[in-house]
Amino acid sequence: MKSAAVSSISPWIWTVGALVVAIVASVAIGAVSIPVDAVAGILLSPLVEFESEIPPAFSTILYEIRLPNLVLVALAGMALGASGTAFQGLFRNPLADPYVIGVAAGAGLAAVLAMSAQWPADLLGMAAIPAAAFVGALLTVALVYALARVGRSTPVTTLILAGVAVSSFATAITSMTMLLSTSELHRAVTWMVGGFALGGWGPVMAALPYVALALAVLLTMGRPLDVLQFGDEQAGQLGLDVDRVKLVIVVAASLAAATAVAFLGIIAFVGLVVPHLARLLWGTSYRRLLPLATLLGASFLLGADIVARSIISPRVLPLGVVTAVVGAPFFLYLLARSKRRLRAW
């Protein structure tokens, strides 16, 4: 038995440490190599006057490309980490993730429909495709939830079945729409595999309120999720308002995942691998898992983003491709390494 003090602090040191490393690497690494002293000079320039001449493009790259990209990716990683953890807890199934109940399929369909209608990049001052994807994801989840309801309760099995059915339907319509509007095919593929790398602070500001709201709710749902681990029947007997708790978790977790999908495209495996890794390392209590997986999600996605931007530089690999390529084998490794723990979600 590990000492309680050590086991309760070290996960925080690990996750925060990993996040700091990921942030530093993310600022330092890019298609254009900016010397470390120049990075420091640019970042500290509001505070300290520097003698050396720093090319102005470096400053633009840092402030208008790398930093906003870093924040957006970190937000999406947090959203996917927390959302995945919440869905796994809700379904009491380590293979559940936000996409199971149609978040990705709904977002994809709405985005492709908006593109085939030749929506411009900017509609009423909003980024049109992310906005459409966001609304599509939430509508799909609402539909899935409504279909899955049996009387007053929402059994997990009907929720997953409704999710699979609605997702398949949405994916089919998406394929059809893409085939029928070949002129927008390129744009659709670009969005799906990794968003548009919009750059600038606009997307960050657009995503921030939704991610913040969803995380604020999800991070306080640790105890109800712990109670749900005993099953709906016992959770109800223990005094939990099971149906309402489930609804709140589904809405908040879908909101988080929908925001990530809207801005960065369909990123596979983060919502699956991150909570799983956190659980294998630090046990099952959702009160601890939720914040840890949230931080870990940010580090994981930042790491994937660094790989995406640097491995075949100057070409950019889509983020979704990197997370799938890294995530799938990693997931299998976790599975093989700890089958005993896997039973123990």
Partner: peptide, 8 residues
């Protein structure tokens, strides 16, 4: 690649 541009 897949239409992803390297703005940087």
């Amino acid at each position: 690649t897949f239409g992803q541009l390297n703005t940087e």
